[in-house]
């Protein structure tokens, strides 16, 4: 079974982003970047499938400017075999990303395609579903457990009401949720080894992917700031404030 994992370079999750003073966009200058946490979980799952002898090869792909090669190297250090960078603008729209991923998946004849459930910058939560639709293949989003059973997968999904289990025939698309696994740290020897693993660069044109791009960003603003609150010294005072000042309890 060949596994393809799509990974995105995003702002590090510990960084609190700021809006630029002209409100045209957020300020990403000199901000620490990292592998999207959900993508890291996707890579980990793929590598575990390889270690278990279920997956034959793990290929990682990222779409963006050359900078995303850094995250591809991270994924290689975590255990992926090979990487592909598709050279394109950063912040490409999700449909374009999905169309490019479709071409890569077809070229690679991937059996299982893993993505993060959402990128923590744009918080879109849509690329995996779009890819599955374009390929007319089944999807299991928000996965918290994946079991391979021959030519099919049994996937547990985290849904609003609890957990749901689906069975999918391969090829299939799975997007990861937080509790699927706990990603490992890359060891120094593996970071060194990753530098020698193959990393190909392609363009959307070479792949024959048509870009979409119909969402225009008009501006970005900071969220409404909350008024500073007060410190209460006792539970008694708290209950009194909630009752008589905020009037949110009876």
């Amino acid at each position: 079974m060949k596994v393809l994992v799509a990974v995105k370079r995003v702002i590090d999750y510990n960084v609190k982003v700021r809006v630029k003073s002209d409100r045209s966009d957020v300020d990403l200058a000199n901000v620490k970047m990292a592998l999207n946490p959900f993508c890291e979980i996707a890579v980990e799952e793929a590598v575990r499938l390889k270690e278990a002898g279920t997956a034959s090869e793990v290929v990682v792909v990222s779409i963006g400017s050359k900078a995303c090669q850094e995250q591809l190297r991270t994924a290689l250090a975590l255990g992926a075999d090979r990487a592909i960078q598709v050279e394109a603008a950063d912040q490409l729209d999700s449909l374009s990303v999905a169309r490019i991923l479709q071409k890569v998946a077809e070229e690679e004849s991937a059996d299982l395609i893993l993505l993060g459930k959402q990128a923590i910058d744009s918080d879109n939560n849509q690329t995996g579903q779009m890819l599955a639709a374009l390929m007319d293949r089944p999807q299991a989003t928000f996965a918290s457990a994946v079991v391979v059973e021959g030519e099919s997968l049994q996937v547990t999904r985290e849904i609003d009401g609890g957990l749901q289990t689906l069975s999918l025939n391969l090829p299939a698309i799975v997007t990861t949720d937080l509790r699927l696994n706990e990603p490992r740290y890359a060891s120094l020897p593996n970071i060194m080894k990753a530098k020698k693993k193959p990393l190909d660069v392609k363009t959307p044109d070479e792949l024959g992917a048509q870009l979409a791009g119909s969402v225009e960003l008009l501006g970005v603003e900071p969220p409404a700031e909350r008024q500073a609150g007060i410190k209460v010294s006792s539970v008694e005072e708290l209950v009194d404030k909630l009752r008589n000042e905020a009037k949110v309890i009876a």
Binding site: D93, S94, L95, A98, S122, D123, N124, N125, Q126, T127, G128, Q129, M130, L131, A132, A133, L134, Q139, T141, F142, R157, E158, I159, D160, A212, G213, S214, V215
Partner: peptide, 23 residues
Amino acid sequence: GTTTGKNVAPRVAALLGVNQLSD
């Protein structure tokens, strides 16, 4: 913007050849 909505809407968008506005 529930797990059901998020699961299906991007599929609809992709099949219609449009982007989705999330949340």
